[in-house]
Each structure stands twice: as C-alpha cells, then as structure tokens.
C-alpha cells in the first residue's frame, strides 16, 4: 500500500507538488493521469526515494521511503530516461541490478530475454529507444518487486511490444499481487490495464477512483416516454440530451435500480447503454476546466 498525505515539494519558485494525496491499495494497477507539468514525474521520484518532500508524508507499507533500503529493495522503477554506462551491454546492466537488489531472479531474467527477444550481449547505447525500454522492463521485472513504478512506460514502444510488456506485467500482478503505479498523459492508453485511476493537475490530485466503482455507478439511458409522462424527480441526472423523440440521459446510480424506477413510467422505448471510460470521466470531471479535460481525455 502506498499512501501520500499532503505532499509539498518546491523547486525555487515552482510548487511542483502542492498538498498531494494519493492511495494505492495492494495489488492495484493504478493509472496516474495528468497533463504535462502536472507533477507526475516529481511524485514518482518521491515514490522511488530520489526526492525528499518539503512537507507531508509518504509511506509505503507504513514506512517512509527516503533513504530506507528495506523499503527501496521492494520497489522497481522505470524512469522516462533509461540510465546506463556508455560502455555497458544489456547483461552488464543486469549484473549491476543483480548486485543491488537481493531478490534479483536470474533464471527469470533469462526467460524474459526470450519473451522480449532481446540479446544480452548488445551495447545499451546501440539499442533504439524502444529496445532500451524493453531492457529496462527486463531489469525491473527480474527484481521481483512488490511495487513497480513506471513513468510514461509506453513511450517509444510499438503496439506489439506494448502488448507483450503489459501481458508480462499483468501476469505478474495476477501471480504475485504486485502493485503497479503507471503514469501517462493519456487516459485511453491506461483504460484496459488499470483498475484504479488518479487524475492530477498542478501538483494536486483532482480525483481518485476505482474503475469498477465508476462503471457501476453511472448509466446511459435512451428512452421515449408516452405523451405527458414525466420522469421521477428522484433521479440524479448528470446530463440530458434529445434527438427527435428520443431522450438521452446520463444518470448516477446502479443500472438495475434505475431501470426499475424508470419502467414505472411505462416508456414506449428504453435502452440502457454502457458508458466508455472516457464518457465517465467527462461527466465525473463535470465542473472542471476544459483544458484539463481535453488534455486528459
């Protein structure tokens, strides 16, 4: 479990984190979404123990991270720029990680090499950006971490490799209950892999939710009511539109209960449609600035 409470971090005049709060439950795949400059990478550098906060508290399984090797050995991180020594091969870097992380799993590292089609004898600097990312995934997964922190992990990966890498990560989540925190500026990229989403802007957390909870608490209904009939007042309508005689409503509540309530008005036609994650967030973020919506969605 990762918990951040009222984290503040300033760099000269800029407040990169401004009272940020975050909770990542064990075994969750948590998507951290926000526009450029929202503070995602700054937060991630706190989670991996690189930065120390000015104020607030950051706990991983109840313990602070900064300069705490006992906690840090359970965390594997992939930064946006992959670090390596200029003369190092992929296997040289592996030996470095294996010397630092006590839980490093050499046989698993070899298997990952096959799955990712990556030759350990190649020089890191001669690999493409995407191949360096793949190498970094190999180092990180072979550490057998409890917590995996990924900063913009999909940059530079082609669709086939994205899928392979996500397959390996999610298999690990299913098998070992790894918690994953992954940042992106694009919600759509994370839709199929995450079960929790946090939306950040200007150093603050705007919204933190579990996806199943979101999906179960909002419904889109198309209906035609008989002339003169009115919908019950009790409905919590988030949005309403009309095309010809068909009314479209976005309602907060559970599908079964709402359909029973509306069926009482004897509609001539009624259809319930699932909402996409994108639609859910548009209505959840309702009152928020347009700029955030357009960047995040």
């Amino acid at each position: 479990m990762i918990e951040a409470r009222n984290l503040v971090k300033s760099f000269e005049q800029t407040r990169a984190l401004d009272g940020l709060t975050l909770t990542v439950p064990d075994g969750a795949v948590y998507g951290l979404v926000g526009p450029n400059g929202a503070g995602k990478s700054t937060l991630i550098r706190h989670l991996t123990g690189i930065y120390r906060q000015d104020e607030g508290e950051l706990l991983i399984n109840g313990e602070p991270v900064y300069e705490n090797p006992a906690v840090k050995k359970t965390i594997a991180g992939i930064p946006d720029e992959i670090p390596y020594w200029s003369q190092a091969t992929v296997d040289d870097m592996m030996r470095f990680y294996a010397s630092v992380y006590p839980g490093f799993d050499r046989p698993y590292y070899e298997n990952l090499g096959k799955a990712l089609e990556l030759d350990g004898k190649r020089m890191m600097r001669k690999l493409s950006k995407g191949q360096q990312k793949m190498a970094a995934f190999r180092f990180a997964l072979a550490q057998r971490p409890d917590i995996l922190v990924l900063d913009e992990p999909l940059d530079g990966l082609d669709p086939v490799n994205r899928r392979t890498v996500w397959g390996l990560i999610l298999g690990d989540v299913a098998e070992r209950g790894t918690s994953v925190l992954v940042s992106s500026h694009n919600l759509r990229e994370l839709e199929d892999v995450c079960d929790h989403v946090g939306i950040m802007n200007r150093g603050k957390m705007l919204l933190e939710r579990s996806l199943s909870e979101l999906q179960e608490n909002m419904v889109k209904i198309q209906l035609v009511l008989p002339d003169g009939a009115e919908l019950p007042e009790s409905l919590n309508v988030l949005h309403e539109g009309q095309t010809g005689r068909v009314r479209q409503l976005i309602l907060r509540g559970r599908a079964e209960e709402l359909s029973a309530e509306i069926a009482a008005c004897e509609p001539l036609f009624m259809d319930m449609l699932p909402l996409t994650l994108e639609e859910i967030f548009i209505y959840e973020l309702g009152g928020m600035e347009h700029e955030i919506k357009s960047l995040v969605l």
């Binding site: 397959g167 989540v173 299913a174």
Partner: peptide, 18 residues
C-alpha cells in the same frame, strides 16, 4: 487461469476475476 488470460489478453487480472 487468471494469470494466463491476463498475460495473453494484456488486461487487468481484477477485471478477469470479476
């Protein structure tokens, strides 16, 4: 198994469990 499906389809294991 949940793990097989998660790896194969690259989707969240909690989704499969559900």
């Amino acid at each position: 198994s949940v793990r097989e499906l998660a790896t194969q389809l690259a989707i969240n294991p909690n989704t499969i469990q559900r």
